[in-house]
């Protein structure tokens, strides 16, 4: 699974929260961060993308909007959505 923020800053915040959440639920995840410019090549190798910005290439991989992690509004729902998608 890849947490695809843009710079380093936002994706680190998101990665941390998802890692904590998954550890609590006993979900095994392998998280990688990258910036959006690098995703133009494709992200097919991953199961789920969490992006705090728009994915310009249209990933073809299920994508969750990571914005709530930054605004602090709706974090729980987003985490649940991520958890469900990962377990299915």
């Amino acid at each position: 699974m890849i947490v695809c923020g843009t710079g380093i800053a936002t994706s680190t915040v998101v990665a941390q929260k998802i890692r904590d959440y998954c550890a609590e639920r006993g979900i095994e995840v392998d998280i990688q961060q990258t910036k959006v410019m690098e995703t133009l090549r494709g992200v097919e190798d991953y199961d789920l993308v969490v992006s705090t910005t728009q994915m310009p290439g249209g990933s073809g991989v299920p994508t969750v909007n990571g914005m709530p992690f930054l605004t602090g509004v709706g974090v729980e729902q987003t985490l649940e959505e991520i958890g469900e998608r990962l377990q299915s």
């Binding site: 710079g7 959006v36 910005t53 310009p56 930054l70």
Partner: peptide, 11 residues
Amino acid sequence: GLDSAIAVGAP
């Protein structure tokens, strides 16, 4: 007020 990183993915 957020990081403009959220905007840089726009085509």
